[in-house]
Computed example of a mutant assay.
Amino acid sequence: MCGTENRTELPLAASTAGCSCCSPGAASASAFPAAAGTETDEFAVEGLTCGHCVQTVEKAVAALDGVESVSVDLVSGGRSRLVVAGAADEAAVREAVTSAGYTLTSNR
Rank of each mutant, 00 (worst) to 15 (best):
L104I: 09
V83W: 02
T38S: 15
V97K: 02
S28D: 12
G18K: 07
V72D: 00
G78C: 08
A31P: 14
V97F: 03
A85L: 09
F32Y: 09
G78I: 11
A13C: 12
A88Y: 03
A29S: 12
R79H: 08
L82N: 00
C21Y: 02
G18C: 06
L48Y: 03
A62T: 07
T16D: 15
G101N: 04
S69V: 11
S23G: 15
A27F: 07
S15H: 05
V72W: 04
D73A: 14
D65C: 08
L48P: 01
G78F: 05
V45A: 01
A36K: 11
E42A: 14
C19L: 11
T4D: 11
R108Y: 13
A88I: 02
R79D: 13
R79G: 09
A44M: 12
C50F: 05
V93D: 00
A44P: 01
L82T: 04
A63L: 07
G51S: 10
L64H: 06
G78A: 14
T98H: 07
G25N: 04
K59M: 12
M1T: 11
T8G: 09
E46A: 11
Q55T: 10
Y102P: 06
N6M: 11
A62Y: 02
C53N: 01
V45N: 00
C21M: 09
D73P: 00
T98M: 09
R7H: 09
L74C: 02
P11W: 02
L82G: 01
A31Y: 04
G101T: 04
T56G: 05
V72G: 01
C22T: 15
P33Q: 07
S28H: 11
P24L: 14
T38G: 07
E42V: 13
V97Q: 00
C19D: 10
Q55V: 07
G3S: 10
T105P: 01
Q55H: 06
A100I: 05
D65T: 08
T4F: 14
S106W: 06
A44C: 09
V83T: 14
A13Q: 01
N107D: 13
S30E: 13
S106I: 12
A100S: 03
V45I: 15
C22A: 15
V72R: 04
Y102Q: 07
S69F: 08
T56C: 09
V84C: 06
E58I: 08
N107Y: 10
A29F: 05
V93L: 00
R7M: 10
G18W: 10
E9V: 15
F43R: 02
G3L: 11
S28W: 12
T8E: 14
G86A: 08
A31Q: 08
L48Q: 03
V61K: 02
A100R: 03
C22M: 14
S80C: 07
F43G: 04
A60C: 07
T40M: 13
V83K: 02
A35Y: 06
T16V: 13
T98G: 11
L48E: 00
A92V: 04
E46I: 04
E39G: 08
E68Y: 09
A31I: 08
E95H: 03
V70P: 00
T103A: 12
C2M: 13
C2S: 14
A62E: 01
T38Y: 06
G101E: 05
Q55C: 10
L74I: 06
D41F: 10
T4Y: 14
D73W: 09
A60W: 03
T16C: 11
V75H: 05
K59A: 15
E5S: 13
A31F: 09
V54C: 02
V72F: 06
V97S: 02
